[in-house]
């Protein structure tokens, strides 16, 4: 009981949940549990097939890919209210393409992705809200990725004229 109360209070902090109807909110909360992770705890690894989407409530979670000869490369950190593991919610969900690890002690909402997908199938109003949120997440992630790809802080390729 206490746990579920904590959960609801926690979820109410997330802006997106505020825009849900009570029915949608409760249904989503039913699919969710909280996880208190210590720094260094792993949420998932590359290749995993576990089926959750996560929202950071507190702390910091890093997404990383192991690159041979470079070790683990952290390419993104999820901050409070950031979503990670979002590909679980997309229809063509496959295995994890990156690993997720808490770099600070973190509290994370873990939402059962299969339940979420099923709910969205049944209730298209909810499905629309969910996908709209997800589109925003993906768009922002894409923006970040592009900027990183540009490698804008790298030295110039041509000699500069000073």
């Amino acid at each position: 009981m206490t746990d579920s109360l904590d959960l609801k209070i926690a979820l109410q902090m997330i802006p997106w949940f505020n825009s849900l109807t009570p029915e949608h909110f409760n249904k989503t909360a039913e699919l969710t549990h909280l996880r208190h992770a210590k720094a260094g705890d792993i949420f998932f690894r590359e290749g995993d097939k576990q089926d959750y989407v996560y929202i950071v409530l507190d702390g910091r979670v890093s997404l990383e890919i192991f690159v041979p000869h470079h070790g683990k490369v952290r390419f993104y950190t999820a901050e409070p209210f950031d979503v990670f593991g979002w590909s679980s919610v997309t229809p063509g969900m496959r295995q994890r393409t990156a690993g997720a690890m808490a770099v600070l002690d973190s509290t994370v909402a873990c939402i059962d992705a299969e339940g979420l997908r099923n709910f969205a199938e049944i209730d298209h109003d909810f499905g629309y809200l969910l996908m709209r949120r997800l589109a925003n997440v993906v768009a922002s992630r894409l923006m970040v990725t592009r900027l990183q790809l540009i490698d804008m802080f790298a030295g110039p390729s041509e000699p500069i004229n000073d």
């Binding site: 720094a39 997404l63 990383e64 490369v73 952290r74 390419f75 950190t77 770099v103 990183q148 802080f153």
Partner: peptide, 11 residues
């Protein structure tokens, strides 16, 4: 833009 194992800040 890119963190290593020791970096606990934002990426």
């Amino acid at each position: 833009d890119r963190g290593d194992d020791t970096w606990t800040g934002r990426v």
